[in-house]
Design a protein around this nucleic acid. Structure first.
Ligand code: SF4
Length: 367
DNA sequence: ATTGCTCAACGG
């Protein structure tokens, strides 16, 4: 009885907590449901744009994806698309209407403070070295060398490494993925490795469940990729074919010098990107698989810990989530925005005013 | 073959 009141409620507040506050005129203009309310695979205008111009993979990630792509997608696939393709968002905006696609200054500020904290933490334990990079092989060799630095640190007795790259082709997806793990912790007695993912927050309270889920997903994906390297499931050919690298040409002088400087014992030899890759692929196999991780939330202002929670790797759950995400990248299904219970996310989103997903959900809720 | 092709994560 009281519920009917709720559905009629129009929220013109700046606070977005329901679908129904979208602009009435915009809703009238967009008529997706001519043929009833069944959710067809590509009913959104943005999906039609995608199918006309190529899959997200071809268009935006022809060689490799980054872990952050999947993490953003986990948060909201529609928002990911709008970030990749502002034109997909502008489809919903009538010509002449002035609209911003910039993130708010506040949100930029919060992200910057997060970056600052992470940078400071990295500098606490490792010294950055500048290396001249000329070719893309050089650039990838540096990434591989950063993995080797972690391996060396752990064999020297260090227990913590930060900003450690991982790469691979998770779950046989056929997608090459690259990411950087915030922190790895090594226990030399048990010979185990765990992930610590630090998240800084403006708020001094723990985030909502779906945000924690997203962070657990991120840690899970890192763990899975690390483990694939440990299991020897990442091959030289995968790197070569996906990244289109020529692995057998010598790296440029700056990197050669760096390698010899780093390890004086290494014999005078000209290294190729493939040499570095082979070493890393082989050395990674001496680790054990990661089974656990921790997500830690820290208040930006006070730097005090807010909360932590453990992540136990659930490979099957992760697999099905990940492969579902891959379908979107391949253009096998349409874009899906946030669930009703997660529509609070829209209040933080720069695309809320003309978001197609929101408009459709608002229209649906009026049946 | 004019011919290239990505710093990731950052927080909500
Ligand atoms: S407004 Fe909501 S549904 Fe639309 S992109 Fe932003 S978060 Fe996703």
């Amino acid at each position: 009885m009281f519920e009917t009141d709720k559905t009629q409620h129009k929220d013109n507040d700046s606070n977005i907590d329901e679908w129904s506050d979208a602009d009435e005129d915009e809703l009238a203009k967009i008529d997706f449901f001519d043929n009833g309310c069944e959710l067809s695979k590509f009913s959104l205008e943005c999906d039609k744009l995608l199918s006309a111009e190529g899959t997200p993979l071809q268009r935006y990630r022809p060689k490799y994806l980054i872990v952050s792509d999947f993490v953003q997608q986990y948060w909201c696939e529609q928002q990911l698309l709008y970030r990749l393709s502002p034109e997909a968002y502008l489809l919903n905006v009538s010509p002449g209407v002035d609209v911003s696609i910039e993130e708010s200054a506040e949100s930029k500020e919060v992200k910057e403070r997060g970056s600052d904290v992470h940078l400071a933490r990295e500098l606490e334990i490792q010294v950055p070295v500048e290396v001249e990079v000329i070719t893309k092989e050089d650039a990838w060799a540096v990434k591989f060398l950063n993995i080797q630095t972690m391996i060396l640190a752990f064999t020297k007795g260090h227990r913590v490494a930060r900003e450690v790259p991982v790469f691979g082709v998770p779950f046989g997806s056929g997608f090459f993925v690259y990411g950087i793990i915030d922190e790895l912790q090594y226990n030399p007695d048990l010979h185990t490795v765990e992930i610590l993912e630090l998240k800084t927050r403006k708020s001094c309270y723990p985030p909502r469940k779906s945000q924690q889920d997203k962070d657990a997903f991120q840690v899970g994906l890192y763990a899975e990729m690390f483990n694939d390297l440990v299991r020897g499931m990442v091959t030289r050919e995968m790197v070569e074919n996906h990244l289109k690298l020529t692995l057998d040409t010598p790296l440029s002088g700056g990197i050669q010098r760096h390698i010899h400087q780093q390890n004086k014992k290494v014999k005078m030899k000209i290294f190729t990107c493939g040499d570095i890759l082979d070493m890393v692929l082989s050395q990674m196999q001496s680790f054990t698989c990661i089974t656990k991780g921790t997500v830690e939330y820290v208040h930006q202002e006070s730097r005090k810990q807010i909360s932590t929670f453990p992540m136990t790797l659930d490979q099957e759950k992760l697999r099905s989530l990940f492969l579902k995400q891959c379908e979107w990248w391949r253009g096998e299904r349409g874009t899906v925005g946030v669930d009703v219970e997660d529509c609070w996310k829209c209040s933080y989103c720069q695309f809320a005013p003309f978001c197609e997903w929101r408009a459709v959900k608002a229209a649906e809720s009026k049946h």
